[in-house]
Design a protein around this nucleic acid. Structure first.
Lengths: 247, 247
DNA sequence: CGAGCAGTTGATTATTGTCAAGGACCGTGG
DNA sequence: CCACGGTCCTTGACAATAATCAACTGCTCG
């Protein structure tokens, strides 16, 4: 109840994700069309944005905060299958039902477009479809990167991989670059990390303690992380550290 | 050396994947354009089609046979991140390098388009881009399904999941439907299955033996599988067996 | 026939999960 | 103010699952 939903954005020109979201290449005429079918919605941490199986009446972009896509088995085992950060797109034009639960991991603001009109606009505007294809290909790459993490990495490597991804995303968001020590707050609970990595929360906790003991990371409190040497972390993650930096 | 590469296809009208591939919705004029930039290539089982990191000069569709996308870590651990069946698309218009190795798992025929001209055609032909988006979204769904398998399922469930997917794909290809016992040949070695499932080949072998002992599957030789009760297999896979059949 | 490959099976070890107890922090209400 | 309950996290003891190492079978091909 502490956060007061802010539904007062309205101008795409001021939008923090203007240049990265699905609308990135839209001209001002197209933005006007989008403004007519868009609306903002806020969610508190923990709220479910979309239930798996539900009809979807909108598609949209994450403006601020973090959402997760999760799949759940009958017996309760759950696996996170996507982490949605600002500018990421939610929903599939041309599809009816939602295949996964979408949950607000932190407080969340979404820019929603009514689905039907958006689909029509997309049909008339090839470069929106093109941008969406581009973003979907990126998501597919990210998903495949995670398949390697899930299938072949050890618990320690999994944690290091997650930390390195969060660190890089944070760096690209705050434009602080990747030289020198990196500092950020973990946006996920231990349990959410476990669901992302296919581990138990106990194992997550143990491996974080181990990385801390070995000086790979520093912790203040439970969430505030400092990474003194990014190269070291990437070695721990089992990633290629030499050669060009991955974006 | 036993299979003699057949490079004699040329007419899209007779193409076995005509209605499912990226060209599914093309009219005859567009097909003519495609015919001009296309060529067929054959690969033997085990050959590498594209090396990770290489420049890609073509994109294309699997016509017959099976290819796999794999990622490899420096120390040799490998994870399969995609299984490409007839009609599946290879390559990413708009991107330079290949992010994964593409390997022919069986003898393979590909319908290749020269990349540049294909990209130009795509820019002029929105519905090709649209079809590609549709196929990419399907791949993304499949990848996320696998993330659940990799992250949360037991070895036995993983094997059952793989068998049920192969069985369903085979059924949709041969149009034999899913009622009654299903019969097919495994197109993968134990090692390839292990790479797909994030297991060792020994564990794959043991779990297949266990499923056979328990009557969930029958085996003739090492590759010929009969599934007497598909519902039983899907229970073993931990999948929702009630409710609508997943496509 | 022997080499080589794909697969199976056994013995043992290692990693991670499970179960259990307890600590740190936070807001609430007496 | 402090006790209470709740959530999130940590740590320990133990168990289970899958990996590793190793031997061996059966088949195919030259």
């Amino acid at each position: 109840m502490s956060s007061h939903p802010q539904l007062c954005h309205s101008d795409c020109d001021d939008c923090p994700i203007r240049h990265r979201a699905v609308c990135a290449h839209c001209d001002s005429r197209e933005l006007e069309e989008l403004e007519e079918i868009k609306y903002y919605r806020s969610f508190e941490a923990g709220q479910t944005v979309i239930w798996s199986g539900d009809q979807m009446s909108f598609v949209g972009s994450v403006v601020s905060g973090i959402a997760s896509l999760t799949q759940t088995m009958e017996d309760g085992r759950t696996q996170m299958v996507g982490l949605l950060l600002p500018s990421d797109f939610v929903g599939r034009p041309g599809r009816e039902g939602a295949p996964y639960d979408v949950v607000a991991t932190t407080d969340l603001v979404m820019c929603c477009f009514r689905k039907k009109p958006f689909e029509e606009l997309m049909a008339r505007t090839p470069h929106i479809a093109h941008r969406l294809l581009e973003m979907t290909l990126d998501e597919l790459d990210a998903a495949r990167e995670w398949m390697l993490v899930l299938g072949r990495k050890t618990a320690r490597e999994k944690i290091a991989s997650l930390l390195s991804i969060i660190a890089r995303r944070d760096a690209s968001l705050t434009k602080r670059g990747m030289s020198g020590p990196m500092v950020f707050d973990l946006p996920l609970t231990r349990e959410a990390m476990a669901d992302y990595l296919g581990l138990t929360l106990e194992t997550v906790s143990r491996q974080i303690s181990a990385l801390k003991k070995d000086g790979v990371i520093h912790l203040e409190g439970k969430r505030h992380v400092t990474i003194p040497d990014m190269g070291r972390l990437m070695e721990e993650a089992g990633d290629d550290t030499d050669g060009g930096f991955l974006v």
